[in-house]
Amino acid sequence: MMAYMNPGPHYSVNALALSGPSVDLMHQAVPYPSAPRKQRRERTTFTRSQLEELEALFAKTQYPDVYAREEVALKINLPESRVQVWFKNRRAKCRQQRQQQKQQQQPPGGQAKARPAKRKAGTSPRPSTDVCPDPLGISDSYSPPLPGPSGSPTTAVATVSIWSPASESPLPEAQRAGLVASGPSLTSAPYAMTYAPASAFCSSPSAYGSPSSYFSGLDPYLSPMVPQLGGPALSPLSGPSVGPSLAQSPTSLSGQSYGAYSPVDSLEFKDPTGTWKFTYNPMDPLDYKDQSAWKFQIL
């Protein structure tokens, strides 16, 4: 009977010793046993002879290597770790002494450095960015050149030099007046198309007034536009458009034309069986010896 009264063996659950049927240790109110408190290391007290050895090595170098620390530790009968900690504390003490010396050398008012006064946003004049500046400075420094007289040679050079070769001289006033084509001369031969040399188009003023001019072949195509416009036809070669000034309004060009419109200028042929003959000019830059190549039959 006494065997049943004795408590059973101890069981360990999660490293906790349980005594038989008792489960009081598993209750929430019972805390787990805490780790033992780490003991504080005792402070090391250095003797005068030990301090002399350490100070002598510190005077040589503030960062001794492990071999120098072990050698000193053997002399003063201390572990190497204590020597390492002593050098660490000695360097910190040396830095603190240097900072105190710097503070003593500075004057009393030198510690508080005078800061520059901050400028207020409204006091300083700042350039306004509302208006974009002129990058080319046209509004201040540029002045347009004065327009020359209508009959000045410089204007003629600016007008005619675009179309004339570089080897030719500017046309005088008398020749510029001949550039304007007359109405009857352009409409006299509506079906004849003559190819003149390129030099005649640039230099010869008579080429624009003769039936064999460069633009005589364009007349049949330009004249039928007159009834559609409801007024006189516009002429690209009329009046002052080739003269001194090219800047004319469309209203000033509306009254200039080749001449009176005639039914002869239409595109319809009077004789459907007729042929169109292209007159060959020996001055043509295209060297075609066979003139029969310039004739064709309209079917």
Rank of each mutant, 00 (worst) to 15 (best):
G151I: 09
P135C: 13
R41K: 08
S216M: 10
G8Y: 14
T275Y: 11
F87S: 14
S12A: 09
C94L: 06
G183F: 13
L146G: 06
S12G: 04
R90V: 13
S266L: 11
V157Y: 09
Y63Q: 15
P272L: 09
P31K: 04
V226S: 03
Y32I: 03
R115S: 01
P190T: 09
G122T: 03
Q100S: 06
A166C: 07
Y288I: 09
Y258N: 02
P36L: 08
A73Q: 14
T129E: 03
F269Q: 00
P64V: 13
A15I: 14
W294T: 00
V66D: 13
P21H: 11
L179I: 08
R119F: 04
K102A: 06
Y261E: 02
S223G: 06
A73G: 09
G20V: 12
R98G: 03
S199N: 03
S49H: 08
Q106K: 10
S139C: 08
S238H: 08
G178C: 07
L16C: 00
F296A: 00
A293P: 10
S262L: 12
L267D: 00
T61G: 08
A15N: 01
T129F: 06
N281H: 14
S266E: 04
Y221C: 02
A35Q: 06
L218H: 01
R126A: 07
Q297M: 14
Q106D: 03
S152M: 05
G8T: 03
Y261D: 02
P79A: 05
S141F: 05
P79Y: 13
K289S: 02
Q105W: 05
N14I: 12
V131Y: 08
R90P: 15
P135N: 07
V72D: 14
G217S: 04
G183Y: 10
D265M: 15
A29R: 06
R115T: 02
P147H: 06
A247I: 12
T47K: 06
K295L: 13
E70Q: 05
E268D: 02
P145S: 08
T251H: 05
S139H: 06
L25M: 01
T44W: 13
R69K: 09
P205R: 11
A189R: 10
Y4I: 10
P211W: 15
L222P: 00
T194C: 11
L286I: 05
C202P: 02
S254G: 04
P232Q: 05
A56L: 04
Y4G: 00
V264C: 05
G183Q: 03
M2G: 04
P36D: 08
S257T: 06
P64K: 14
G274H: 02
Q39F: 13
T154V: 10
P125C: 11
Q50G: 15
E268W: 14
P236C: 14
Q99F: 05
E268V: 11
P285W: 08
W86Y: 12
F46G: 15
S12D: 00
A59Y: 01
P232E: 01
